[in-house]
Simulated assay, not measured.
Amino acid sequence: MFQGNQIKTAALLGLLSGLLVLGGYWATGNQQGALIGLLFAAMGSFGSWFYSDKVALAAYQAQPIDRNQAPELYDLVADLTNKADLPMPKVCVVPTQTPNAFATGRDPEHAAVAVTQGIMQILNKEELAGVIAHELTHIKNRDTLTQAVAGTLGGAVTFLGKMLTFGALYGPVSRDDRQGGNPIGMLILVIVAPIAATLIQMAISRTREFSADRGAAEITQQPLALASALQKLESVGRQVPMNGNPAFEPLLIINPFAAGGLESLFRTHPPTEARVSQLQELAKQQRNLAST
């Protein structure tokens, strides 16, 4: 399943980049537009790679801590990091009562795990360990970078559409007395492309969450503890929403606002029920292996 999710993620990121390149071409009707789209994709990916940790931490006002400030939390992260065979990440606390957590960073050597004050108050040690192991799996799988790149490319699709449309409407008239590029291309960029980019970004996010849950179960060997944590986070999170830039919602371990029908396509996370069901199945598999 892990390899399948990796292939799916790579394919979805390729679709996002291709949307930028094709959108630029359709909007201008020439190779220059395609090069503009390619340039946006490259610049966005590099910017996300280099600044992903700083931007996400700043968005939620996460404060770095050392062991003296929160020894139990710091030691728990250190123990799980050792089990996951990762370098020790920065440990941060977000000053909010909303129970949530996230990981960020361009690679395992430049990573951070952030938990809110609220999550430490409602979860027991085993449940918090499951959440932290989930975030460490994101770091190990480089999901933090993947989400940052996906978010940047998605935003670039929208921005490029607006920029090229403005230029097409108010730019110089072409030799055949037509302004701008292909009107169908402009329509795709202005209306269809941003929606498609958002759908792709959300699909990437949902795929990575399932993989991170499985990774957490392997690290802690307690999948039911994470299942219990997810249920608590969804229940309490509905009452105390998380404030921050919506662009970084895919980084959070859970988005408590459920959606059904067509709206489910725009979910940043899989349904909690589906995640809990997967974790229960993993617990059953562990029991069967232990009994053989």
Rank of each mutant, 00 (worst) to 15 (best):
G4D: 13
Q6I: 13
T9F: 03
T9W: 04
L13Y: 00
L13P: 02
G14D: 02
L19Y: 01
G24P: 09
Y25L: 14
G33C: 13
L39H: 00
G47P: 05
W49L: 15
W49D: 03
A56M: 08
L57G: 09
Y60H: 08
Q61V: 10
N68L: 08
P71I: 05
Y74H: 12
L80V: 06
N82C: 10
P87R: 10
P95Q: 12
P95C: 08
A103P: 10
T104E: 01
G105M: 07
D107T: 14
E109A: 15
A111M: 11
V113R: 08
Q117H: 06
G118E: 14
G118P: 10
I122A: 08
E127K: 00
A129D: 06
A129K: 01
L136M: 08
H138Q: 08
H138W: 01
N141V: 05
T144K: 11
G151Y: 03
T152F: 14
L153G: 06
G161C: 09
L164P: 06
F166E: 15
G171Q: 05
P172M: 06
R178W: 00
Q179I: 08
Q179A: 15
G180H: 07
G181D: 07
P183F: 01
P194C: 07
A196L: 11
L199W: 00
I200R: 00
Q201N: 13
M202S: 09
R208W: 11
S211R: 00
A216R: 00
E218C: 01
L230T: 09
L230P: 11
L233S: 10
S235P: 04
S235T: 11
G237Q: 03
N245I: 12
P246F: 08
F248E: 04
L262I: 15
S264Y: 10
L265P: 05
H269A: 03
L279P: 07
Q280C: 02
E281D: 14
L282I: 15
A283E: 13
N288T: 13
N288P: 03
